[in-house]
């Protein structure tokens, strides 16, 4: 082995950042779509969990348990190979689909499971009396949800939503395994172009990018929570 100084060159970290950062666009796009779809399906699952139908409850809980037990990379490949194979049965040819589509499907499935729990627990944290008081002053049930339950549940759910986003972003780093050229995919391309030397520096650059992003998301949601938490102060003058 050559000596360490020659092998580890810190300038590779800084120099790779400008090359890597534009590829965050891909990361964000894939994450953004997964968030939108995942939140939507998560809401449906949450409604199923909170509703009266036992079958719907069981189904939604079963889904969440399965997804919680499946490693992202396994789900990713299951979708990547499984969806086109399944589509074949219906005469659809999906093998040439853009990899990003499979990534979005995977993380939509996963984020929906996360969001269903976030929404359920936020909803359940609001006492039933809030709804009853709202309809007792003449609000319709929809207005009661919209104006009284939702704003309060939002405050409870926000930190968990933020954590869900961070989890999604991090699990998304595995998308390179099916060939998505996001920031991790690009990093691997750079390393390959360097004949596998200076991989460590590039990985450290990647770690810095993700670390900063996670901290920013956390800070952002901390701020957001403060903005939304009207009436949450607990200065009891009692």
């Amino acid at each position: 082995m050559r000596n360490m100084e020659k092998y580890f060159d810190i300038s590779y970290i800084w120099n790779s950042l400008p090359v890597l950062l534009p590829f965050l666009k891909v990361t964000f796009m894939v994450a953004g779509l997964s968030i939108v779809f995942g939140t939507f399906f998560g809401l449906i699952l949450a409604v199923m969990k909170l509703g009266k139908s036992k079958i719907a409850q069981k189904t939604a809980n079963f889904y969440t348990t399965i997804l919680r037990c499946t490693p992202s990379i396994v789900l990713l490949f299951l979708v990547y190979y499984g969806v086109p194979a399944l589509a074949d049965n219906f005469g659809l040819y999906l093998h040439d689909l853009n990899t990003a589509v499979f990534v979005v499907i995977t993380f939509t499935l996963q984020f929906a499971a996360i969001m269903s729990e976030v929404i359920r627990s936020a909803y359940e944290s609001i006492e039933k009396g809030q709804f009853e008081a709202a309809v007792s002053v003449g609000l319709s049930p929809f207005q009661a949800y919209r104006r009284i339950i939702f704003p309060q549940a939002l405050v409870v759910g926000l930190p968990n939503f933020g954590n869900g986003l961070i989890a999604l972003l991090q699990e998304g780093s595995l998308a390179y395994t099916i060939g998505l050229i996001d920031i991790v995919g690009k990093a691997n391309l750079i390393i390959a172009a360097n004949y596998n030397t200076h991989a460590l520096e590039i990985f450290i650059a990647l770690a810095i990018v993700y670390w900063v992003l996670s901290i920013l998301i956390e800070k952002f949601f901390g701020k957001l929570e403060k903005v939304f938490s009207k009436g949450k102060q607990t200065i009891n003058t009692n």
């Binding site: 006492e127 009396g129 809030q130 009853e132 008081a133 709202a134 007792s136 002053v137 003449g138 609000l139 319709s140 207005q143 104006r147 009284i148 704003p151 309060q152 405050v155 009207k230 009436g231 949450k232």
Partner: peptide
């Protein structure tokens, strides 16, 4: 709309001020 309810545990809207609690039913309902 013809009745009002006063609860044992108050059930004030936690996300609204006193005045907003009182006006919510008037404005929205």
């Amino acid at each position: 709309q013809k009745t009002a309810f006063v609860f044992q545990n108050y059930n004030l809207f936690n996300n609204k001020t006193a005045i907003e609690n009182v006006t919510e039913g008037l404005i929205i309902g």
